[in-house]
Amino acid sequence: MIPRARHLLAVCLLGAALTACGAAGGERPAPAASRVSAPPSPARPPVLAPGPGGLTPVFEHGPRTRGKTVALTFDADMTADEGPRAASGEHFDNPGLIDALRTLKVPATVFMTGRWADEYPAEAAALGHDPQFEVANHSWSHYAFTADCYGLPTVDADGMRADVQRAYESLRAAGVPHAMPYFRFPGGCYDQRALRALSGLGVTAVQWDVVSGDAFATDADAVVKQVLDGVKPGSVVVMHCTRSAAPTTERVVRTVVPELRERGYRFVKVSELIGQAGNGR
């Protein structure tokens, strides 16, 4: 007969998946579901400190002396009045571009209008759940926050704050779980009045230091050259995620990414650059 101690050991080894060895009084372990802890909530994304009087801070690029990092950013533009154009078949999304970024394993930041998220909720949700991307706010309407901004309609000062908040609501409704506290002004146009209007929202306004020139471009090689000539350590590159308005962007990305990697650059999200800048690094 097997001694009692050896017998208990054999039972434990054979039945480890069902019972816990050494449980006092032969008690069964708690059901697996009760032992699984809730997933940790995401860490709070880095932001810049407000300016004087609580003015919304503006970020243009990361540190120049902390290695060769570069952030590719993509504006998912759709203006409030462009619904009929989308209904008639115009494409304001660009799945091929997103597939290229995934294939190339390039982390990226997408600045999405609420109207775009309303039009393409499945794509918005997919980006919002993919750890390779971070989704940020590009207003709901894509109307300008200043006068004379590339011919865009304008939002008055009283409506600016509500437009940003409505965009976050659309992102949540589309299934983006954790939209970043970053805001890009439509057209990149802002002034002190616009910065004051957004004070207290806790957002960092994100601009750029490299204009790709992909908007309405038809010559991909010219866009590639402009990006490669402009990138420096810590750069933020602005591009677009709209097939109809930026038809060359996928080709540009497929050329620029391997070339910048060959030059020693590492691709990061905007949040990493903001974190470096906020830490004084």
Rank of each mutant, 00 (worst) to 15 (best):
D158H: 14
T248H: 10
V206Y: 08
G234M: 04
F74R: 02
V231Q: 09
C21T: 11
A144E: 05
G53R: 08
V236W: 11
G89D: 01
A147M: 06
V106S: 00
A33R: 14
V176M: 11
G53T: 02
V106A: 03
T56D: 00
A20R: 15
A205W: 11
T56N: 12
V227A: 07
W140I: 08
C189H: 04
D163F: 09
R6P: 02
Y190K: 05
G54Q: 09
A167I: 06
V238W: 04
V164G: 03
P31D: 08
H129K: 12
V236N: 07
L273E: 00
V236Y: 11
L101K: 12
P40Q: 15
A87E: 12
A167E: 10
Q132V: 07
C12S: 11
N137H: 04
V224F: 03
F111Y: 00
A122Q: 12
T204Y: 07
A215C: 13
F133H: 05
R64N: 03
A100P: 07
T79Y: 03
F145R: 02
A174E: 15
V206C: 03
E123Y: 05
T249I: 04
L13N: 00
A23Q: 11
N137M: 01
Y190V: 00
G202A: 11
L48H: 09
P186T: 10
G275D: 13
P52W: 01
G175K: 12
F185R: 01
V227I: 15
P39L: 00
V227N: 07
F111C: 06
A24I: 06
R85T: 10
P46D: 03
H178F: 04
K232E: 14
G62S: 04
L9D: 08
D93P: 01
P153V: 09
K232G: 07
P40N: 03
